[in-house]
């Protein structure tokens, strides 16, 4: 099982054994990772799973599709080049060690 590392605002790290095929949002919510809400269950309606992807993983994770891009533009408070919605990132073996940082606030 690939590990996904969630970094909280204060720097605390939490490592979760994630299931391949799950989204990063679902991985966080099911395990009770604070800072990721995932209110809409992963259907691009709430942007409450905003994360910053660690730069090393950006090429592997890729860029947001159109609808996600709109959501990031309109819904999140501090969008950066590394911003993604965790519900749109699927865990794969290639993403072993994926590190994402939680923002200050979710909308």
């Amino acid at each position: 099982m690939p590990k996904v590392i969630f970094v909280a605002l204060g720097g605390a790290r939490r490592t979760i054994d994630a299931a391949v095929g799950d989204s990063v949002m679902a991985t966080a919510v099911r395990n009770g990772v604070p800072g990721i809400v995932g209110e809409c269950g992963g259907n691009l309606s709430c942007a409450t799973c905003h994360v910053y992807v660690h730069e090393d993983f950006l090429p592997l994770v890729g860029s947001p599709a159109d609808l996600e891009d709109d959501m990031l533009d309109l819904a999140v408070s501090d969008r950066r080049p590394t911003s993604r919605l965790a519900c749109q990132i699927t865990v794969t073996e290639a993403l072993e060690g994926l590190t994402v940082e939680c923002p200050e606030a979710q909308p």
């Binding site: 299931a19 095929g21 679902a26 099911r30 395990n31 009770g32």
Partner: peptide, 14 residues
């Protein structure tokens, strides 16, 4: 499996 709201570990921990 993808529908589960929380892991068994979540309920135990809390």
């Amino acid at each position: 499996a993808s529908l589960h709201l929380r892991t068994p570990g979540f309920y135990a921990e809390r």
